[in-house]
């Protein structure tokens, strides 16, 4: 069973529906003990970094998530769920989970023509092969909606990049953890392919 981390009572139905569509049985989970027993975990994004971290801590889900990741369980972070895996976020100046060393930055305000949030479809360029990103072709586009992006310290954690007046990291990974800035559950057929890949991934790269 895949557990969808429900840490802020947010609207996670679109993630669950997309899982169902690719044949991945999934349930919501807000309980740390249940989370520790997960076969695989999806960590979706709801709200802002500050309140997300507060909710995770209040429910003891931050520690449970750390244990789950250390135990080798495949984990997929989406959007904010990916961003809080780094060390620090500029959003609400928040200390985050520090699973992947690095920071989360806001898109530059000093480019007057750059619309923020970055919202819409954009190309994902894979820079490091990964089982969950298998079958994604050059030119394939995914749906984004975000104002902040991840900047991992170690370039080995960068799996894919996207150009928005310059390249930013749009997928990160380390061992059994992978995170995407884009929303596979809203990215039509290529997004469903990514979720199907995750459904069968054993956590090895």
């Amino acid at each position: 069973m895949t557990l969808i981390l429900d840490y802020e009572a947010g609207n996670l139905a679109s993630v669950k529906r997309a899982c169902a569509h690719v044949g991945m049985a999934a349930e919501y989970c807000a309980d740390p003990d249940q989370l520790r027993r997960a076969e695989r975990v999806i960590f979706p994004g709801v709200g802002a970094a500050g309140s997300a971290m507060q909710s995770l801590r209040a429910r003891g889900l931050d520690e449970a998530l750390r244990e789950v990741i250390n135990s080798g369980t495949p984990v997929l972070g989406i959007c904010l769920g990916m961003q809080v895996s780094l060390t620090h976020s500029e959003e609400n100046d928040t200390a985050t989970l520090d699973l992947i060393p690095g920071v989360v930055r806001r898109f530059a305000f000093d480019q007057p023509d750059l619309k923020v949030p970055h919202m819409g479809w954009n190309e994902v360029r894979i820079v490091q092969e990964h089982p969950v990103l298998a079958d994604i072709q050059p030119g394939d586009e995914f749906y984004f909606v975000h104002s902040y992006f991840p900047k991992p310290q170690d370039s080995k954690a960068v799996l894919a990049v996207t150009d928005y007046e310059g390249d930013f990291t749009c997928a990160i990974g380390k061992d059994n953890y992978i995170g995407t800035q884009f929303h596979p559950e809203k990215s039509a057929q290529v997004g469903l392919r990514l979720l199907a890949n995750f459904a069968t991934w054993n956590g090895q790269c």
């Binding site: 529906r17 749906y143 909606v145 809203k186 039509a188």
Partner: peptide, 8 residues
């Protein structure tokens, strides 16, 4: 629609 259309 949401259970079969995976775009915004």
């Amino acid at each position: 629609v949401a259970s079969e259309v995976f775009i915004p």
